[in-house]
Write a protein that binds this DNA or RNA. Structure first.
Lengths: 349, 349
DNA sequence: TTGAAAGCGATACCAT
DNA sequence: ATGGTATCGCTTTCAA
């Protein structure tokens, strides 16, 4: 290891005070931009601070002022196939604008790690915690945080029984999907889902049934596989329908990954998308816009969610009025995998 | 806003001390698990702490102990098409095991934000900073951190002139690619790159030329577009070669996204992959393994990098011996877009 | 406008 | 084994 020298002793406000010939209180005031200090001493202090490379100590500051300067965030994982990255990006951006740091932890879908991260957030006295829980049960989170700071729940798994919740309306997704497909002339539409049947899946199914009925259509629904490998589930389901020769004219998949499984299987069987069958995903993951894929899907406004979460956190920290419960709506992104319903005669199978 | 009540005053070690009838020093010792305290008082203290829901204050702790309990991390962005998420996941995991929190900031490729995040890391007195710089020039980072803590640079853009660097050997990528393709019988191989020509691109080009020469082959190299839209660049380049009727039998793209542009364009032209032409990407992004894509590519060991970065950070914080410079090697992931070189006669164009 | 003194919640050091 | 006291770096409160 190469010898690296660090400052033996970092300058504090007292260091500056000595150099400027004032009390450390005056320095504190100057640094915080208080008004009750003469412009000239303030300038002198600031200049010295700059020269000696003074950096305030956030720990000392928040210890004596009893104000938090950070927020916590806990996500299941930041893997590339999830959308939490977009949420975090926005949170980090807004936080930085307000001089607020973000403590991020990924729970890897382990309740134990989730609890541990909460514990660390407590010890660090964050001003608020934003969490996308790994499951629908959040009692361990509330217990670990025991009212030390407000907890903002994010995502579709949590209902409004919690104090602060930002959620997505997946029924609205169903509405957009069915309306769009119906208008394209589709009447035989299937929904593909996977286990576990959490809130987000249930909402999609409920909404689907409801909207199909509105259009006077019979909803078809199929379930297979598990959330951690939905593309295989999509493959399996579509293989089954092909074998039974009961393919609908349009399929809505509960996730983009599932849609990818469906898309490749259809193409392998020589079934054209969208000419023979239309396909819609959900979440608008990055790969959906790639050339050669161009998946029609539902965009979940993760950036807006991140923004709202951070604004809520800041509002809570400043003890302002806040909107404790907010609902966000997915929007339809029409790309290349959807088109008019084929005539019966046109269909190849 | 619903009325939410927070603890008016959080319990401290003094609260516990009163309740247990001991000094706060004894409490501190019990909580830290010191040996110089009788088992019975220790147990009593721990029990009370548990009962009243005591949570240590990290700020106070690190202020008086002068020890850091957090590390900082700065990334350009955690968008879904980057691999930093995988690095962070691992860092968060290792950090949590050591009771260390991670302050994460995304610079959105802005030097100003990068500097601002450094400043906040300084104020928070992190024990070490792990940064994937947005560019090759890192003087503003070093200046902003001015020796307050060790800075660990990560990624391919930085050379060993910095104190702590974890880097990837992209020349090795070239070696793996050329050896593999050569062994498959390819002799007409092209490398597609994009601007800007940073270290990572230069290494790939250098390595490519070198390895091709070793095999007695003439390297072909093409450049187009910019790093923020490499899939379009890939499309443009391959269109050009198709028009000139000078397609090689194998293409190596500097990024998976670029390879996606190439793949779709080839298929649109009825050129089969891998029968007519082989295709290799770089980075092993998530979508490459999806059904219907199955891109042969180079895997960059981001998890290992994250692990090493955090181990290095912890080692530095504990003032242990560390490996200041580490090189990681990409590995070849063979999937469906590569195959034996076609006979001239077999080729369709 | 300025400063002295008292904390914030913990640890370190030195007695006992 | 236990406790008193100083200290960490800063803000707050009060008095001048």
């Amino acid at each position: 290891m190469k010898g690296v020298t660090y400052l033996y002793r970092k300058p504090t406000i007292k260091t500056i005070a000595q150099l400027a010939g004032v009390s450390h209180v005056a320095v504190s005031r100057a640094l915080r931009g208080c008004s009750d200090i003469s412009a000239e001493t303030k300038e002198r202090i600031l200049k010295i601070a700059q020269e000696i490379g003074y950096t305030p100590n956030a720990a000392a500051r928040s210890l004596s002022s009893k104000r938090a300067t950070s927020v916590g965030m806990i996500v299941p994982t930041l893997a590339e196939n999830t959308a939490y990255s977009a949420v975090f990006n926005q949170i980090s951006m807004v936080a930085a604008e307000h001089g607020c740091t973000v403590l991020l932890g990924s729970s890897h879908r382990s309740l134990e790690l989730e609890r541990k991260h909460c514990q660390m957030m407590c010890e660090n006295r964050v001003g608020a915690l934003i969490v996308s829980p790994s499951g629908s049960n959040v009692s361990h989170i509330k217990e670990a945080c025991h009212g030390l700071f407000p907890v903002i729940f994010m995502g579709g798994k949590i209902g409004f029984e919690e104090d602060f919740v930002l959620t997505l309306n997946y029924k609205h997704s169903a509405k957009l999907v069915v309306e769009y497909l119906y208008q394209l002339g589709h009447s035989d539409i299937a929904l593909f889902t996977y286990a576990p049947e959490n809130n987000t899946i249930l909402q999609k199914k409920d909404g689907f049934i409801q909207e199909m009925k509105k259009c006077g259509l019979a909803p078809r629904m199929y379930t297979a596989g598990h959330a951690d490998d939905t593309s295989t589930a999509g493959q399996d389901l579509v293989e089954q329908l092909i074998m039974e020769d009961t393919l609908p004219t349009a399929i809505w998949c509960a996730s983009d990954l599932m849609a990818m499984g469906v898309l490749s299987t259809l193409r392998n069987h020589g079934i054209r998308v969208p000419e023979d069958i239309s396909l819609i995903g959900h979440d608008d993951l990055y790969f959906g816009r790639l050339p050669g894929i161009e998946l029609t899907t539902l965009h979940t406004p993760m950036k807006e969610l991140g923004d709202a979460a951070m604004q809520l956190a800041l509002g809570l920290m400043e003890r302002e009025q806040v909107e404790a419960h907010q609902i966000f709506h997915p929007s339809l992104v029409i790309r290349g995998t959807t088109g008019p319903a084929p005539n019966k005669a046109q269909r190849q199978h």
